[in-house]
Amino acid sequence: MRIFDPHIHMTSRTTDDYEAMYAAGVRAVVEPAFWLGQPRTSPESFYDYFDGLLGWEPYRAAQFGIQHFCTIALNPKEANDPRCLPVLDELDRYLAKDRVVAVGEIGYDSMTPQEDEALARQLQLAIAHELPALVHTPHRDKAAGTRRTLDVVRESGIAPELVVLDHLNELTVGMVLDSGCWAGFSIYPKTKMSEDRMVEILEEHGTERVLVNSAADWGRSDPLKTRKTADAMLAAGFGDDDVDKVLWRNPVAFYGQSGRLELDEPKPDEEATFQGNSIRRGGA
């Protein structure tokens, strides 16, 4: 079984996670730029983070046979802090880089005017850079927030097939699929969405334009939820081809629209370094 996790924050995970993910079948991941659980207070913190998403983290992933890509954006939560807004002026530099396969995570957190502005501007950047957009939907007031997000996406002029709305549930999936956008689901241990509920959604709405991710980060989360969803699909009677479509071909099709998804399995190399630094301990 080959698995592509289209949304996982590997910067927060350990090398044990990488090992377990490879053993479970994960061969490629996309790491969206997001917040760190504690607010950043200056643009330079973002630039170091973006550099890590493009440098150190792909190196780490490659040591475990996993291809790592990323999405770059000013996330909605931190778009509310005026100290962080200059990041928007430097995104052009990062969106032009080879391993950036979408603009994201953008979207709404508290649906403020500042978030409106950041979302609209970054959808225009996606159009200018011919990239897909990964759009986060709010945890609070989700249905209203999802409707409003779809309105902003429509007004932006971006093609709906270039947009995924993420963290959906039973109440928001219908309107997203009807809009022509992709529907993303984050499978969590306790909140958001479980693998069994996910299987029911797939039974009701089909496998077209659906992405399943673990969204694992620094919080309670599980980087193997993609595999566990695949197993739940098989147990419920879906076939191997359905699993391959949802867990591999769909994310490849979505992010492949960037033209930058080069999938060749990296060969782990004990001697490899990134800028002279390695994941060996006691060594360089």
């Binding site: 530099r93 032009a96 080879d98 930058r260």
Partner: peptide, 10 residues
């Protein structure tokens, strides 16, 4: 140059 320079390799 800020968006063209990074795109050169591809």
């Amino acid at each position: 140059v800020r968006r063209l320079f990074p795109a050169v390799r591809r």
